[in-house]
Design a protein around this nucleic acid. Sequence first.
DNA 1: CTACCAATCTGGTAGGACCAGATTGGTGTA
DNA 2: TACACCAATCTGGTCCTACCAGATTGGTAG
Lengths: 249, 249
Amino acid sequence: MTAHLQASEGSRAVKRTIEFIRHHRLQKGDRLPSERELSDRFGVTRSSVREALAVLDALRLTERRPKSGIFLRNALEDSGLDSLVIQANLDLPFDERTMRDVSEARVIFETHAIRLACARRTDADLNRLRELVANYSSRVQAELNVANEDVEFHLAMAAASQNAIIVRTLTPLFLMSFQWRQKYFSSSVIRRRSLADHQEFVIAIADRDDIQATALVRKHVHSAFDEVLALVEGNGQPESHNQRAGGDE
Amino acid sequence: MTAHLQASEGSRAVKRTIEFIRHHRLQKGDRLPSERELSDRFGVTRSSVREALAVLDALRLTERRPKSGIFLRNALEDSGLDSLVIQANLDLPFDERTMRDVSEARVIFETHAIRLACARRTDADLNRLRELVANYSSRVQAELNVANEDVEFHLAMAAASQNAIIVRTLTPLFLMSFQWRQKYFSSSVIRRRSLADHQEFVIAIADRDDIQATALVRKHVHSAFDEVLALVEGNGQPESHNQRAGGDE
DNA sequence: CTACCAATCTGGTAGGACCAGATTGGTGTA
DNA sequence: TACACCAATCTGGTCCTACCAGATTGGTAG
């Protein structure tokens, strides 16, 4: 449901193009090879390349100038958050700096989301959170992975802030870390600890206790980040790595 | 440089598809017409439709299931922030609720960005901010629009937080409001007031005075939001409006 | 050295073709 | 009547070819 089981040629082209940009250290304003050359280089049709470029355009990474060429609008590091989700889905690695920034941003954003949730949450929000915790709990007892359910719960908390933009901001931060999350929750101990945290979250939000709630965020996210950082350690830098980038097939 | 002067068929197809989703009130899980039907309906080639769908896929709005169909992955309101930028570029309107959420989110995010900037800003950051203010000032005196320069300055402040994710989060919030910004800064009085604010920002950041800096954010953004809301007032709700949706040309 | 023009290159768009799995509706059987 | 099965149809995925017209460029004439 989350991972693209069989990557389409379009997705491949996106990945290859991003790798190309990284490999050649292209900077803002630099020009990419023409569509025809990229299609040769990647071994796919120009149609597929064009689909990929449409995506990169939407992510504000490239700019296609008619009758002229394809140019880098922003450095890879300056594109939108959604591009991080895509890079994650394509198994492109992140550097530690990015992960650290994501963690910090998540604490900040989620802290405020929770604070607002404490002030504005409706009874419906509360019921939904309780449902999610119940479901989470049953999955934990069944020794199932709860990576999806964890995201669901945290987004539901964010939704209780009644601010859709905050939810839409947190979403990519969760999605881009889905793979780490998957590994993270493979531990039964961690699943149980996480469940306990979630239960505390619900209590705090029910009591509108934003002091307790925000403290929980810090604890919850930081402990998770430490674990994840240990897991991902040694996965490789963003530069010059060829992780499963062998032949065309 | 910002607005696409002549929309490509691919962009048109994106716009038409979003309008289709809105018009038919499609919800998460609903199925869209086939590519071939959309291409008929929009009067463009399937290639163009496919480019558009690739974009909508990247924005996590749709999901293409091979040999089956195109389905809505999320409601329009739940897609990523980048989709808001695209909607803004396509002249698709936002409802007041969204604008209010954006304003609130911007205050929250930017407040934290400034706080971090006060703590972490380097001398280089400070120099850059001063350069930008100088440029801003000269443009104000020349009675030029400073919509671009305003975004530049605020993003530079965010960059001084040394957290790239925060910058990448604020970017779409600025970009999606570029049109309002354009109108907003058409007033000479507002340009001067904004310049004064910016100068105060630099002083606060130079002194690492996060109390003053965060207070400035609130004042700066709120006053701007009020003005903008007045400007946009009566632009129409997100439903059933046909703002310049007449003939094909 | 400069001005100018034509060959070339580039993105944009159209249209057609084939593949193979998903879907569906009708048929024949129990 | 109800169910199982199969073939026609539909769908997304990919490839290929062909034009168009503006941007670019390299060589040539002045």
